[in-house]
Design a protein around this nucleic acid. Structure first.
Lengths: 200, 200
DNA sequence: CACTCATGTCAACGACTGTAGGCCAACATT
DNA sequence: AATGTTGGCCTACAGTCGTTGACATGAGTG
């Protein structure tokens, strides 16, 4: 080992900047065009390098997508949501809807994931995994009956994904024109009910 | 004019069967693969004819999609939904959710429309038009404030499209495993509220 | 019968795709 | 300075795509 600043952090390579540029361009293209129309050549052009570099660093197109779509929803900790006295005056539904809007508008990864997941098996699996592993625990902690947790998570996912689809992908004009606050006000009770209501 | 049974109905041509076979194969492929991966060659193979026939009858791939994705939601008449005493013991929300599930499972046109709309501009526009022109009037008739009708229609669309996305496209396991009745029971109050509630 | 036109097949073109491999320059290490 | 390694570009291949046009065949009509 020559230089390890802390523990076993990989050394900074000169190619890190290039790799990052490729990933950023890939996310933009996947988000804008979906899997098939986002060509390696176009991504390389955006990143200002040669297409063969993409192959060198990510193996093939699937590997590139896997690297570009790594994603953490960063949902608030379950404990934070359930401990008594948390969220003063706020409901879980509103917190979650706002958080999802934040995550959706922060970068283009979720849009890419959605656009790709619709026509690509790997993308669909990753979308499944994100909602199962990251939203699932929240539903499990809030659901009155633990056995219902997966269904409740799927219901929340359906409403969140549906709004994202309408607003960020299909761009239905009324969905685009609604203010952030209007969306939160309408969707929060829905999400709240899907997670916590005793019966439909 | 040689033969016009009623008014100006086009004469039955021998190629009608071929055209229909092409459209059916196109709908299947577009629904299963999306726009880019649904190739004219594959569609022609499914229909048992030569790819050039597709070009002859529909001009190009866009024309084929336009013909294959013509769609009528067949929503219940607005009058039927609003007249006093209609829907004995039923809520509008439940009727609409059931109707949407029916339409989604009846054929593959809506799935094709959704899969294509996510990556293809023409598909997105058609999806917009379907919900604007066919769901919009229902929202206008039910909304307390006519000015809110487009927003309310978009909210309903977001929940319906989201469930269709989760259940028929992404196939999130919990969404697939839910029974039809469970979905209706959970979504109906949401749709009902989006259409008729005074305030969020 | 001959003629016409709709229906269908076949072969090909040009463009674009993912991917592979060879070559070159800059750098780090000895 | 010599050497091995890393980062990068260029060219090329094999395959697929949408699309085109020439050609064959059949039915229908005079």
């Amino acid at each position: 080992m020559s230089d390890s600043p802390t523990s076993d952090a990989p050394p900074r390579r000169r190619s890190d900047a290039t790799k990052a540029a490729i990933l950023e361009a890939a996310r933009e293209r996947f988000a804008a065009d979906g899997y098939e129309r986002a060509t390696i050549r176009a991504i390389a052009r955006d990143a200002g390098i040669d297409p063969s570099m993409v192959m060198r660093y990510y193996g093939n197109k699937e590997g590139l997508f896997a690297a570009a779509s790594a994603f953490d929803l960063r949902l608030p900790d379950v404990g934070t949501l359930t401990e008594p006295g948390a969220l003063p005056g706020r409901q879980v539904g509103a917190v979650l809807v706002e958080h999802f809007l934040d995550r959706w508008e922060a970068d283009e990864v979720l849009t890419a994931l959605l656009r790709v997941g619709v026509t690509n098996a790997a993308g669909a699996e990753r979308m499944q995994a994100v909602f199962r592993d990251q939203l699932g625990p929240v539903a499990a902690a809030l659901s009155p009956d633990p056995a219902q947790a997966p269904s409740r998570a799927a219901l929340v996912a359906s409403q969140i994904l549906g709004m994202a689809l309408a607003r960020y992908v299909l761009r239905l004009p009324p969905a685009v024109e609604m203010t952030r606050q209007e969306i939160v006000d309408w969707l929060a009770p829905t999400v709240q009910r899907y997670l916590t209501a005793e019966r439909p």
